[in-house]
């Protein structure tokens, strides 16, 4: 558990892992366990997960949260018109499914997702029990 989250938190490790995957995987467009790329932020009250999903609409995306695991899945259809001569084909095309272990419990009832300019932003408010709480110190009995 700890080892896994350490890897997720280390941008260098992530970059390296992605490069390695690219090197070993000749069929990159159909193997997309690292797509879409994501950033995770903490704004104090909520976790903010941002993912790059250019060209996708709300209907192409599914977000589910089971306990502390968020999964984004969908399909990027990118069909070319028939009979065209292809010069370059770099944009990833595939079904994809990516899961993230969230570092906190979140209030699943209040999760909101917004899609703009090919960027998906998921706001995950922390579970009330994860919010800082002030503990009343009782006066000691005499």
């Amino acid at each position: 558990m700890f080892g896994y989250s350490y890897a997720l938190h280390d941008p260098f490790f992530n970059q390296l892992r992605r490069r390695m995957m690219d090197l070993f995987d000749e069929s990159a467009p159909t193997h997309l366990s690292t797509w879409p790329p994501a950033n995770l932020y903490d704004n104090g009250e909520a976790l903010v997960l941002q993912m790059e999903v250019p060209g996708l609409t709300e209907e192409d995306l599914n977000i589910s949260i089971v306990q502390d695991v968020l999964t984004l899945s969908g399909e990027r259809k990118n069909r070319l018109p028939e009979g065209v001569h292809l010069h370059r084909r770099e944009r990833p095309v595939s079904r994809f499914s990516r899961s993230f272990t969230l570092p906190y419990r979140v209030n699943t009832e209040k999760v909101e997702a917004d899609l703009a300019n090919g960027l998906l932003t998921v706001m995950l408010p922390k579970h009330p029990e994860e919010q800082p709480r002030k503990i009343q110190i009782g006066a000691g009995k005499k």
């Binding site: 938190h9 941008p11 932020y41 704004n43 790059e52």
Partner: peptide
């Protein structure tokens, strides 16, 4: 991104 957001992990 908002400057008040603290990164937990970054791929982008």
């Amino acid at each position: 991104v908002e400057t008040t957001w603290k990164p937990r992990f970054r791929e982008i």
